[in-house]
Design a protein around this nucleic acid. Structure first.
Lengths: 186, 186
DNA sequence: TCCCATATCTTGACATCGACTAGATTGCTG
DNA sequence: CAGCAATCTAGTCGATGTCAAGATATGGGA
């Protein structure tokens, strides 16, 4: 936004990323067009390719950034329910990242940056699940499935008629508490 | 497959649908190309448009068909866990349908056929949840989130390292049992 | 039986997109 | 200050979705 018409954009990579996040959040990853992003940034149609190689490269960069954000958002969760609440909160705060992160067919799954970021998230998740129940993998999948399913259905507007205006995050807290036998609110 | 080269295909609509399901199941909805489907069916590139209007129309037809299949697959579920197991089983048996059904950005959400089919599924789901807990909507969302999340993560191959070769359906049964305080196997 | 309205399919065209290449411009570094 | 690497532009190609107009087959009514 600083220089209006210089040969070099200044921070094209970031500009394309934010524009892409905007498009994905409102219209989904399928509606993403590299040429449109270039137009939004005011550069030529082939400029983004230099930063991201191709479409898959751009989405991979978004996914990697998303994993970094998710790892930070999970932080030091108190328990499984809190972990799920943070997961859902992340999905609501960064819908574009979330919609891309778990779609291998859109990504370069062998990208080293993506692998590193994903591994950071997974270790964070594993640590939070440690010691829950006799089978950690089972508890892990149960918590992940519930949080991921809620977040996915929420973002795809499939829960619109059910939430009845209440805060999704609070709804999930009550929901997770009911499922694990604990009260909805402490 | 009967007539090799007649002007009329015979059942082009079904041929395009099955070809599309094949593509979506293996490469996802983003890789779907109307012209490629036309080539597979041995017709001209504009022939599919007459049956489905456009890309969104084709995906909408798949989604509507999927809702019909899902309603049938849910059948008369014994309890919430059985309902979830049937949901996961459907996702595994009809991955292409499942991957399209809950993506409003890919569909004509005002299509009457789609709306009717979706309503049939929802009433089936609602009936199965009736009388569970004090807040039916909460139990409904909890069960749906868990089943949908597990199915989504399963199809996107995000559980590959966790399932350790066991049957996904059985894993989900154990998982749902652990979450609701019941044993994994009856 | 004939005939035509309609459904189905073909052909052609246009704008757009992703990807590639070659060349221009800029900024940095020695 | 010189040259080198990073960044961006311009041009091109094949493929795609969508539309319009024409060709062909099918079925029901005269």
């Amino acid at each position: 936004m600083t220089a209006e018409r210089s040969y070099h954009h200044g921070d094209l990579r970031r500009a394309v990323l934010t524009a892409a996040l905007d498009v994905i959040a409102t219209e989904g990853p399928a509606a993403l067009s590299l040429r449109d992003l270039a137009r939004r940034a005011g550069v030529s149609h082939a400029a983004p390719a230099h930063h991201f190689k191709d479409r898959a490269g751009l989405l991979t960069a978004i996914a990697a950034e998303g994993h970094g954000l998710l790892a930070a958002a999970l932080g030091e969760a108190e328990d499984l329910r809190d972990l799920g609440v943070r997961y859902v909160r992340f999905a609501g705060a960064h819908p574009a990242h979330f919609q891309v992160m778990f779609r291998p067919e859109l990504l370069r799954t062998d990208d080293p940056e993506l692998l590193a970021a994903r591994e950071r998230t997974r270790t964070r998740l594993r640590a939070a699940v440690e010691g829950y129940g006799d089978d950690p993998a089972l508890g892990f999948m149960a918590a992940w499935s519930m949080a991921h399913g809620f977040a996915t259905l929420l973002l795809s507007r499939n829960l619109d008629g059910l939430l009845s205006g209440s805060d999704p995050e609070e709804t999930f807290r009550a929901l997770a508490g009911a499922m694990s036998g604990r009260p909805g609110t402490p």
